[in-house]
Every structure is written in C-alpha cells, then in structure tokens.
Design a protein around this nucleic acid. Sequence first.
DNA 1: TATCCTTGACTGACTGGTCAATCAGGGAGG
DNA 2: CCTCCCTGATTGACCAGTCAGTCAAGGATA
Lengths: 200, 200
Amino acid sequence: MATPERAAVDKRRTILDAAVRVFARQGFHTCRVSDIADEAGVAYGLVYHYFNAKEEILDTLFLERWDVMLAAIAEADASQRTARDKLYAIAEFIIDSYRHDPNLMKVIIVEVTRAANTFGRTHLAKIREAYQQISGIVARAQADGSFRKEITPEFAALAFYGCIEQVLSGWIFELEPAGPGQLERAKTLIVETICGGLEG
Amino acid sequence: MATPERAAVDKRRTILDAAVRVFARQGFHTCRVSDIADEAGVAYGLVYHYFNAKEEILDTLFLERWDVMLAAIAEADASQRTARDKLYAIAEFIIDSYRHDPNLMKVIIVEVTRAANTFGRTHLAKIREAYQQISGIVARAQADGSFRKEITPEFAALAFYGCIEQVLSGWIFELEPAGPGQLERAKTLIVETICGGLEG
DNA sequence: TATCCTTGACTGACTGGTCAATCAGGGAGG
DNA sequence: CCTCCCTGATTGACCAGTCAGTCAAGGATA
C-alpha cells in the first residue's frame, strides 16, 4: 500500500469502478469523460494517464468480465454433468453475476453485447466464443441422445443465450421485478423452457 | 403527384427511407444528419423542414413499424388458433418483416429495442405492449391446459421474444447465415424450442 | 542527517474539430 | 405577392484528447 505500484493500481481501479456507475446511469455515448473523472473523484487528465481513449475504459470492463464468463462456461462444460446441468450452471453464473454487480452487467449487455454495430463489433469474436462453447454442449448432448437432433446446436445456443439476456434486460429496464426470489427462480425457468424444447 | 401535398409526402418518405439505410450502415450515433440528406439527395435544411430533430426521424421509423407489429400480434391473438399457432404467426410476421426490409429491422432492434437506456427508454411503454399481448396468449393457453403452469406467462413472453430477437441479431451481425431456407426454418425452430418447453 | 536528483502520479485549463440546428433567402405555383 | 417547398452556409455548443506544469516519494551522494 505504501509502494507506488499499489497506489497506481488503486486509482486505475477507482476509475474503472466509477465508469461502471456512470455508463450504467447515463450510457456510454451520452456521458462525458469528465463525468467519469468527477464520479471517481479524480482529475480529468488522470483518466488519460491510465487509458488512451474513452473507449478503452469500456473495452477493459468488457474484456475483464467476459474472460471470467468464458472460463466459467469452459469449466461447466469440462465437468461430468448432464447437458441440462451444464446449461443450468451457465445460467446460474450469469444471473449471479447480475446479482453481484447489476451495473456492470447492464453496461456489458447494453453497451457491448447488444451494440454489436457500434461498439461490440470489435468484440464480436469474443462474443462468438461463448456461443460456440454453448453449441458444443448441445451438439454433444445430441450425439449421446439426450437432446433431439431437429434443432441445430447453433440455433439452440442463440436461443439459450438470447433468453438469458432478455430476462436480464427485463430486470435492467424494470419490465419485471428483480428480487432475490425472482433471480433464483429464473435460473430454473430458463433451463426448463429451453431444455424442455431441446429434449425429446 | 402534381399536388403539393403529394410531393411533400414523397420527399418526407425519401428522407425516412434514406435514414433507414444510413442508420443501418453507420448507426444512429455515428451518422451525421448531412449523411441522411446526402443519401436522400436532398438539401440539409429540408430534413429540418420535415423533422424537428434527428431523433424524431428514428422515432418515426420505430413507431410506424412497431404499430404494424402490434396490430399483427393482436390479429394473431384474436384468431381461433391454438397458442402454438398464434406464436408461430407472430414469429412468422417478424421474420418476414426482416426478409422484406432487413435494414429497417436492424435499425429498430439495434437502435431502439436493444438500446432501452438511451433511445428506447422513450418507447419502453410501446415495447411493453408487445410483451403483454404475448404473455396474454400464454396465460390463456395455461388456463385451458395446453401449456403447463410452472412457467409464468411474463417469463414465457420474454423468452419467446428474446429468442426471436437473438436469432435476428445473429443474422444482422452475420454470426449465422441468413438464406431464405434459414429464415423459413427459424420460424419452426423458435416455436418448437419455446413451445416444447411450455407444453406439458 | 542534510541536499539534490529523478521519476511518475496527478492536475485542469485549453484547443481543435465535429455536428445539430438555425436562418436568410431563392424559386415555383397559385 | 403570398405561401410553401426547398437550399446550404453559418453559428454556437459541446467534448475528446492534449500538454505544460506541480508535487511527493525514493534513491544516491557526501
């Protein structure tokens, strides 16, 4: 804590955390860099000491979190569970992420994942990785007979992830209540709905 | 065509159609009003003769199309079909809309529906109407026993519409091929997947 | 211990460019 | 000559990114 390195890292983190709140509140396009600096309680210029551009802040936030999610999906896939249980684990991870930091998930979904023509274009490859891992799970479940083969794995991955993201969006924009009970129940509902359609 | 009213309407329409192409190509935030005027082959100022603000153009495009969609959903619901067939009709309408004018659907999804914190906030009520109509279909199917009651109608509506939008997004961002065969097949796949989960 | 040097974290006023929106006026139809 | 449709140069606000400089901490030297 007395070392300069540690202090530096802390300010960087402070700026990133402030950016999450500002992006969530005002949106990436509508907020100013000075809003982030103010929220972080830091001079305007310091933002540019740690980041080369406004976009780099959003980049960093997205990549940090998305890599954790890809790791979680890979771990679920590597386990010896049934396909249904793997998909449950993925839904659980994403929903728990939302519970833990709703602002961060809002920013990632609204500003990156669902903004694929402006900002998310840069990250399409990363986003695609998630789909591919999920469709791999479905494909293997079809091969061993636990899922029927009429529905393509790629389509199933789109439906599964799309369903999760839409439920999160419903909470984010207050179309649906997001109490602890609802979050927990949503995990089951998503897996029931999608796997119900995929299983024989 | 010789009457002033008709000529005026035509220019207005020309601007709206040009805006669809520009918004689809560059995105709402990144395009300039002059890009729209150029694309329409019209003077910059004329845009402000027909619209009070840049946002009003997007507003108009969204409301025009969304009202058509709400009418289509209402019509499907009013028919004497099964819930599964009603949902198929809705999926069909949306996918055919995409086939007929992919640019317009891209703009509506990317710039309005999925941008609910910036632009879509204004239209949340309109968007919610669609969900409510769909959840009504599900609720009545549950009441007559054709859908099971474990999954709430609100959740089912979110899952159903989210699934459709995600599939369209996959086409829009070229994550999946969008040939005529795929479009046709997607209608069935969506209904199979979601209704498969909702039916006993 | 006292003095000087170096480093880099930190500051915020400023600039350059972009773009939405305005407005003064031209021309055609009636 | 009045009313619209139409034009495009101009204006004024806004904001990302720059930069010249301050300050505090650490290390070296004597």
